[in-house]
Design a protein around this nucleic acid. Structure first.
Lengths: 92, 92
DNA sequence: AAGGTATTTAGAGGATTTTCTAAATACTTG
DNA sequence: CAAGTATTTAGAAAATCCTCTAAATACCTT
C-alpha cells in the first residue's frame, strides 16, 4: 500500500482539509474546489494525490466526479501507529 | 504542533525506519547512522527533521547525542485519525 | 450535432526536499 | 593543550512538489 505515499498525501494542509470535508459523505470535485482559493486544476491535482494514496475513491455520476473517504486505509495507518504504543519489543 | 511537519517527517522511509529502531530505547546518532547506507550528515539531517516534528527528542552524554521516541506526539496523531473513525458529524 | 458544464491533463515556473562533500563544532582524554 | 571521536552545519546539485494558465476530455441537454 505504501506509507510514503500515504503520509506524503497527508502532509499537505489542503489535502487534510479535503479529507475533513469528506467526513460527512461524498462531494463532487467542484464542491470541494469551491471551498478553496486555488484553481480547480490545482484541487484536481490534490484529489489525484489522495486517490493514489488510496485515501479517497471516486465515483462518476452524470458529468460530476464524486469523492469519498476510503476508511480502510485509515485503519491500516492506525495499525502502523499502534506499534509505537506501549510495549518495547523485548518486554513480555 | 503542526501536522504538516509531522506527516512530512513520516513520509520518508529512512525516517520511519529510524522511529522503528527507537522503539526499544534510545540510540546515539552514530549507531542510528550505522544502519544506513547514507552518510552521517544525511542521517543527521533526517534526525533534525524528526526532532522538528517532535517525534523524537535528544539528550547529550559525553560526546554522544542520543535520540529517543517522543510518544506523546504519536498520541496526538492518533487523535487526529480518530476523527475519521465511525461517526459522521451529524449523527447522534 | 452543438453548446454548456464539470473535471482533468499538459507544460512550465518557483519552492522545497534529499543527498552529498567539506568544513565546523563540541566534547573527551592523554 | 593537542589529538581524536561524534555529530552538525554550510553550500550545492538533482529530484520532487505545488501552483498556475491553457487546452483537452467527458458527459449532458436541447
Amino acid at each position: 500500500m505504501g506509507f510514503a505515499e500515504t503520509f506524503k498525501a497527508l502532509s499537505d494542509p489542503a489535502r487534510r482539509e479535503i479529507l475533513l470535508m469528506l467526513k460527512n459523505g461524498k462531494m463532487s470535485a467542484g464542491d470541494i474546489a469551491s471551498n478553496f482559493e486555488m484553481t480547480g486544476a490545482t484541487v484536481s491535482y490534490h484529489l489525484s494525490v489522495l486517490k493514489k494514496a488510496d485515501l479517497v475513491y471516486e465515483t462518476k455520476q452524470k458529468n460530476f466526479v464524486f469523492y469519498e473517504l476510503n476508511t480502510s486505509v485509515f485503519e491500516e495507518i492506525m495499525l502502523w501507529f499502534a506499534q509505537f504504543k506501549g510495549e518495547k519489543s523485548d518486554e513480555n
